[in-house]
């Protein structure tokens, strides 16, 4: 799978209140949540995003509340991938359950600037920065997460357990 899009860079410790403030948690609708993605960081932030773009963040992305609405809002906003230095624990788990791909790349994230064009190649395990001509390799996912993705996420997994 190859994802291509423009990078939208945010800082360290971006919490789930910034990703989707509590006042918008009165719906489970993917599109409505997506329309308000990052509204807690900056009003109208979402206007810069085109379908297929990539969120790029610093340390501890997705910290705070356990709201699954956060990865849902990012998916709903049209961003299939988040690349970060590191992720908060609950957000990490939620994202895989919701089909949002997370890449934890450590300090290499500093090599990506806001607006760079990125190609995320999941088979080759590399992020190509076509703006700078550099590449960031990323390690394979933990086996347990690969297994979950292979089964198509948590919902199909539980379906198969209940069958």
């Amino acid at each position: 799978m190859i994802y291509k899009g423009k990078s939208h860079k945010v800082g360290d410790h971006i919490d789930t209140d910034a990703i989707i403030p509590a006042r918008f948690l009165v719906t489970t609708d993917v599109k409505k949540l997506g329309a308000n993605c990052m509204e807690g960081l900056e009003a109208g932030w979402i206007k810069r995003v085109s379908d297929g773009d990539v969120m790029v963040a610093g340390r501890n992305f997705g910290c705070g509340s356990s709201r699954e609405h956060a990865p849902v809002a990012i998916v709903g906003a049209g961003m299939p991938v988040v690349i970060a230095h590191s992720f908060a624990r609950i957000f990490y788990r939620n994202s895989f359950n919701m089909g949002l791909l997370l890449l934890e790349v450590g300090d290499a994230v500093d090599g990506i600037s806001d607006g760079d064009t990125l190609e995320v190649d999941t088979e080759a395990g590399v992020v190509r920065n076509t703006t700078t001509g550099t590449e960031i390799p990323f390690p394979p996912l933990p086996p347990s997460m690969q297994d979950l993705l292979k089964r198509g996420g948590l919902i199909p997994y539980i379906q198969s357990r209940l069958a």
Binding site: S66, N94, N97
Partner: peptide
């Protein structure tokens, strides 16, 4: 499905927050 579920650690329970779909499972 609330991050502050860890509160019950105060009683010696292994308690942790997760997202809604993990909770549904």
């Amino acid at each position: 499905a609330d991050s502050h579920t860890c509160t019950y650690g105060g009683l010696g329970a292994f308690a942790t927050g997760m997202g809604s779909t993990d909770i549904a499972g």
